[in-house]
């Protein structure tokens, strides 16, 4: 994403608010997620970013949303050629303007007029399909149809306007948020948008599409941090966001290439800061400027790399 959030254009809305309100703070957190996604990785090292904010509200989900929106858009030039290369019986992901479909692929039928693609119990006109890809590892439990969400002004502002259906179709849970689920889940209803652009606001739930074990089209996972062990993050996860002290205690056990620890300053619990500083003592400092991020006053940042 370009410097979308850094300018004064980001607005947010929740169920208590009747008009979108400008929110530079939220833009900053989106940008942080985006910068981390775009940063070139250093082999064999894990990047850890600790940030302290006056309240944890929405922070973890905004950073994660920024990360997802910074993933490159999925373009497919030749759907037919792609379909022909798939072996019958293979599970596939498929996107039309309206549906995301996860099903078994049965073949291309070119006997009458325009080719049609057989997936699951349906057959789709080739022109209706925006994207198709084989996913041999996809489990039958996740087969099914989901409605495509339309791109809102934030999604458009980050360059996903034309690819949004395909992006949702191809996405994998590359980010995991660890925290208290009862706090995080209501925050998914937050809507963010880009003032001055066409379109509705985007719900964080539609950007993050957290994995609930049913759908193939998940971009994230929300994991409980209050257990006696660290729940396993999805294998595709590249970023883990640890939301608050209960989650940050797991820092030494997180293995993803990038980790963010979000410290809530309204909590008097100092264990989160201690856990981050202890980890830092084993690493090499990284200047925040080197991340391409220039936080607002009031956001404290500590970045470093540790050997993975």
């Amino acid at each position: 994403m370009a410097d979308a959030g850094a300018r004064a254009g980001l607005v947010v809305l929740d169920d208590e608010t009747s008009l979108p309100v400008p929110a530079r703070w939220a833009g900053q957190l989106l940008v942080l997620g985006a910068r981390l996604a775009r940063r070139r990785r250093r082999d064999g090292w894990q990047l850890v970013v600790g940030i302290s904010v006056p309240t944890r509200l929405y922070g973890a989900l905004l950073i994660s949303s920024g990360w997802i929106l910074a993933q490159p858009g999925v373009r497919q030039s030749d759907v037919l050629a792609e379909a022909r290369s798939i072996a019958p019986g293979t599970p596939v992901r498929l996107a039309t303007a309206q549906w995301l479909v996860a099903e078994r692929f049965y073949g291309v039928d070119s006997t009458r007029g325009k080719p049609r693609i057989h997936v699951g119990g349906s057959s789709w006109m080739i022109d209706a399909i925006d994207h198709i890809a084989a996913d041999p590892a996809l489990h039958e439990d996740r087969f099914g149809r989901t409605e495509v969400t339309k791109a809102g002004s934030l999604v458009k502002a980050t360059g996903h306007g034309t690819t949004w259906a395909a992006d949702q179709c191809a996405c994998r849970p590359t980010v995991a948020v660890v925290g208290i689920r009862t706090r995080l889940e209501p925050e998914l209803a937050l809507q963010a948008g880009w003032a001055g652009r066409d379109g509705h606001l985007d719900r964080l739930a539609d950007i993050l599409r957290p994995d609930e074990g049913k759908s193939a089209f998940c971009a994230s996972a929300i994991l409980p941090g209050g257990m006696q062990y660290l729940p396993e993050a999805p294998t595709e996860a590249q970023l883990v966001v640890l939301d608050g002290a209960t989650a940050i205690r797991w820092l030494p056990e997180v293995r993803t290439p990038v980790v963010v620890g979000l410290i809530d300053r309204s909590s008097a619990d100092e264990s989160a800061a201690i856990a981050l500083l202890q980890r830092r003592s084993m690493g090499q400092p990284v200047a925040v400027g080197a991340l391409g991020w220039d936080p607002l006053p009031g956001i404290e940042t500590l970045a470093f790399e540790v050997r993975a």
Partner: peptide, 14 residues
């Protein structure tokens, strides 16, 4: 509202 509270909190804290 909660959102303006969060916004104010960031501003005042800064």
């Amino acid at each position: 509202t909660r959102l303006s509270y969060v916004g104010d909190l960031y501003a005042v804290s800064g």
